[in-house]
Design a protein around this nucleic acid. Sequence first.
DNA 1: GTCTATAGCCGGATAGAC
DNA 2: GTCTATCCGGCTATAGAC
Lengths: 202, 202
Amino acid sequence: MTFSTRELIVREADQIFYEKGFEAASFSDIAAAVGISRGNFYYHFKTKDDILDAVITHRLATTRAMLDDWARQSPSAVDRIMSFIQMLISNQTTIMAFGCPVGTLCSELAKLDHAARTRAAAIFGLFREWLEEQFRELGQTGNASELALHLLARSQGIATLANAFRDEDFVCTEVAALKAWLQSIIDDSSDKNRKERKNECT
Amino acid sequence: MTFSTRELIVREADQIFYEKGFEAASFSDIAAAVGISRGNFYYHFKTKDDILDAVITHRLATTRAMLDDWARQSPSAVDRIMSFIQMLISNQTTIMAFGCPVGTLCSELAKLDHAARTRAAAIFGLFREWLEEQFRELGQTGNASELALHLLARSQGIATLANAFRDEDFVCTEVAALKAWLQSIIDDSSDKNRKERKNECT
DNA sequence: GTCTATAGCCGGATAGAC
DNA sequence: GTCTATCCGGCTATAGAC
């Protein structure tokens, strides 16, 4: 597991962009973290925007890998969606300190009117499509898209307020509420299935 | 309705901080918008942080005024909460362009580790307390705080995704879902009241 | 109160030695 | 590939004329 300088730059930039924001993160910050000189940067990247592009590409890849892992680890769609929800708990500390990496990057790039805005939003797109697929597998064929966006929005709201208020209890109650919401969807759909089966009998 | 230069600076800075973010907004931007020279700034404010402080103070005041208005305009707590939800529709265009003014400022200041972070979060606090009061008036005495935070979080999530995806339909469906959620709370509580009244009779 | 001029700093980016 | 030295521009902030 040895990384090229380019890879090291991308990894450190990823972290620093998250913690300080893209604009506030300077080449000096990243150079210091990687342990190279500022000048050496330009051998690997032409501009700061190029680094951002590489970071977004990296995030797209790691996100895809994470979603694949979740899919591999749990055969049931409910458990997979639970993995997504559980992320709010496992990343609670960093979320309270810096917010959601995806949400905060997207809103910063929107304000900067930055060309990479849509590519950053594509990370959200990955979650969205993956969740949609899970809901469809749950039998929510008609409204899988709405459910996916709803869950994504709920998690974003939790991250934003967790960051603003730094309140652990809030995250826990909201995550519990999300799990209850997911459960209610399953219950509703099995109710419907039961009714349908009943109708078939009569 | 004539404003002092200081007031003009605060108003323009408020808008520009919202649209470009605090860090990316420069004195030149604000000076150009107000129509004064950059140097003149320092007669009114010592530092950029002082302007931010004034902007937050201004936002706290306008938010309080807006909440008072909502309270004055509708005698019922449900309608008041509806006014809050409706904000997502009336501000839809700017939200899709720049996100929520409060949420985006809070997350930027968190990343900058800025001293004004907690004061910015206090704007959220105003909404939170106001909503809490409305829910208490609705008879939700036990969980008014949770409901207020929940509604605040939902609206933040909607704003973040609306900004990322620029999808009008999403905002409409989520607002409809929020209204349904509010209605379900009222229904549940009147159900309970009915049961209690029934119990009194038997 | 408002201006012009400018200091001083730090950012991104370049040139060229090693 | 990595370094040092340096340019250039924009930023916040200051000084002083009007």
